[in-house]
Amino acid sequence: MRINRVVPSVSATELGPNRDFYQDFLGFEPAMDEPGFVMFRSPNNPTAQLIVVTEDCDWDAQSGRTAMSIEVEDVDAAHARALDRGYEIVYPITDEPWGVRRFFVRDPNGNVLNINMHIAHRD
């Protein structure tokens, strides 16, 4: 399986202190900024990213459930492999309205991972 990017998720009670820390202190910049959800990226290495999400995130209520996002080249093949191996799928494979196809799977340690790929927006 080809992995394109790994993005850790940080659970937060509020975004303000996290903006101060990740943006002002560490120098990340917001790549996506939605209610209860900010994806930060490095300005000199845009694939170095992290997500900060609050429990009350209303933009993507599922985001707070995951420990990290792993972008793969073929999410359907990854989903089939997870099913073949008997891994627990905790969120079904779904085309999200913001252009991502994804599913969530539980790893052997109980962490929930968002396995995804970008797709064209479908109308």
Rank of each mutant, 00 (worst) to 15 (best):
Y22D: 04
V90A: 10
E96A: 09
D74W: 08
T47A: 10
D56P: 01
P46R: 08
V90R: 05
T94I: 00
E14R: 11
V90C: 14
I70H: 01
I115Q: 09
Q62F: 13
L26D: 03
Y87I: 01
V10H: 10
V10S: 07
M39Q: 15
R19A: 14
N114S: 10
D74A: 03
R101Y: 04
V10Y: 05
A12Y: 02
F37A: 04
W59D: 12
T47K: 11
R5W: 07
A82Y: 07
R85F: 14
S11V: 10
D56Q: 02
N45P: 00
P35Y: 02
N45L: 09
Q62R: 13
V53Y: 00
S69I: 14
N111W: 05
Y87F: 09
D20E: 15
R101I: 06
G27P: 02
P17K: 00
P43V: 05
S42C: 11
E71H: 06
M117F: 13
L83I: 11
F103G: 06
D74H: 05
C57M: 01
V112Y: 10
D60E: 13
F40H: 07
H79I: 06
A77N: 07
R122N: 15
L26E: 01
N111M: 06
P30D: 14
N4E: 04
P108I: 06
G64A: 08
Q49Y: 03
M68P: 02
T54D: 04
I3C: 14
D95S: 11
F21N: 00
D20Q: 15
L50R: 00
